[in-house]
Write a protein that binds this DNA or RNA. Structure first.
Length: 410
RNA sequence: GGCAGGUUGUCCGAGUGGCCAAUGGAAACGGACUGUAAAUCCGUCGCGGUAACGCUACGCAGGUUCGAAUCCUGCACCUGCCA
């Protein structure tokens, strides 16, 4: 928890009985990512604790765009946004319980925003907002001070989000909105609106931005975002992301993302301190979160793959089935017998260009099936494709890919 | 509409006729060290080529020049001030 409107009052409200809480997700991409996971887990816990949960996917706010402090967003088409709304709704469903007596509710703010005319919007909603306050919100202030400026469109975003809160307060009795720390301005805009329009006092709660010891945001893997969809970030890559988290942050992440009990956490903490080489905390974290997002079956598969690929043994010694399953989890490309290692690295997506591939070999960072490649002109021969199918390419300590042989009849 | 300033590689940011594929920083990547950790040290960091070298690149299009990221013209976009 980072900030709340009135912590004492919120605690009292929560203690008194179930409340109704909402959190919104804007369809700015076809998939949710690491950052959204914090909110999903929070909602999940709140629901399990007996509270009612309303999950909003921003069909209208997604069309406008929450102002980023750095730059204006490029508008997405309505069709695109609508499609992403569907995808994100589907992605959220597994995290919450939408059946039973305490079923979560899924809403789309386009339903109540779209019918409002511009005039009604300005007269009925706009009157409650003071520009003087609006320009003080962090993201807006940053943009006003930048040489980018800010469009009227994005400037209006906070009004739309505040309107959502008001609507949900009226229709569903929502009295708490959660969000990331950067959403504070938008959340309080809603709280203020409800106070003015309804004379009611409602709450807002933000979660702190998760950063590593160096102060960097979590959720970036090799410069790419960690997505929740298997198409964008494979379960294998997802699992590996968590396995590689720095020691100093594992325990914190376990507390945030998993349902481990305090006793279990204490045990993991002890293990981390006394027998770090076992990497027990990392394995637990990776397994728990991967299960949460991708399910138990996928987790078992990537665990086995990781075990096989990073185990001490020789990959050649693995039994064919294990090897096949493990490499199936990896990214890779198709090559033919006789393809140069350099070209195979490019085809498998391990490097961006042949030049980079050559460089990697020169740096001593490339191996095929565990054997270091020293010759830039090396080619993949028949014997390199283990079990007649796949050559395991490695760049650096932990970038692996599979070069799958294709019918070389052509 | 007028005036002024800006647009450089993933990002920030130098460079104002040749020595510039372009200083510096960040990010990233590889190696050593380890525990698929952090810190540290070393190295790499446009594309093709073993290399010599070639190609592409400093908003876009032309031009001046033996030679331009650097000068000129037009256009686009951004920012500020004025109307």
């Amino acid at each position: 928890m980072a900030q709340t409107t009135d912590e004492a009052e919120l605690r009292a409200a929560l203690a008194e009985g179930p409340i109704t809480v909402y959190c919104g997700f804007d369809p700015t991409a076809p998939s949710l990512h690491f950052g959204n996971l914090v909110q999903l887990v929070l909602l999940r816990r709140l629901q399990r604790a007996g509270n009612r949960v309303v999950c909003l996917v921003g069909g209208s706010t997604g069309l406008i765009g929450d102002p980023r402090p750095t730059a204006e967003r490029v508008l997405k088409t309505k069709e695109q946004t609508a499609e992403w709304v569907d995808r994100i709704q589907a992605q959220v469903r597994p995290f919450l319980d939408f059946d039973g007596e305490n079923a979560a509710v899924m809403v789309n703010n386009l339903d109540w925003t779209a019918p409002i005319s511009a005039l009604d919007f300005l007269r009925d909603v706009g009157k409650h907002f003071r520009v003087n306050q609006m320009i003080k919100k962090d993201a807006v202030a940053a943009r006003l001070n930048s040489d980018q400026g800010i469009s009227y469109t994005e400037f209006s975003y906070q009004i739309l989000q505040a309107l959502d809160y008001l609507h949900l307060y009226r229709e569903h009795g929502v009295t708490l909105q959660t969000g990331g720390q950067d959403q504070w301005g938008n959340l309080t805009a809603g709280v203020d609106l409800i106070r003015r329009a309804e004379g009611a006092s409602v709450h807002a709660l933000t979660t702190p931005l998760l950063t590593d010891e160096a102060g960097n945001k979590f959720g970036k893997s090799e410069g790419n975002a960690v997505w929740l969809s298997a198409e964008r970030t494979s379960p294998y890559a997802f699992y590996q992301y968590w396995i590689n988290v720095e020691d100093a942050s594992v325990i914190k992440l376990i507390k945030v993302f998993t349902d481990r009990t305090p006793d279990e956490v204490a045990e993991l903490e002890r293990s981390l301190a006394e027998e770090p080489f076992k990497r027990l905390a990392h394995r637990t974290l990776a397994a728990d979160v991967t299960t949460l997002v991708h399910g138990a079956d996928a987790t078992a598969a990537v665990q086995a793959a990781s075990e096989a690929l990073f185990g001490k043994g020789d990959v050649r010694a693995l039994d064919p089935q294990t090897f096949r399953d493990a490499t199936a989890a990896l990214g890779g490309g198709e090559v033919q017998v006789g393809t140069a290692v350099i070209d195979a690295l490019v085809a498998a997506g391990l490097v961006d260009s042949k030049k980079a591939a050559r460089r990697a070999i020169a740096e001593g960072g490339v191996s095929v099936n565990g054997a270091k490649v020293t010759d830039e002109a090396a080619v993949l021969g028949e014997q390199d494709f283990l079990f007649g199918a796949v050559a395991l390419l490695r760049r650096g300590r932990k970038n692996l890919a599979a070069a799958r042989v294709v019918d070389h009849a052509e």
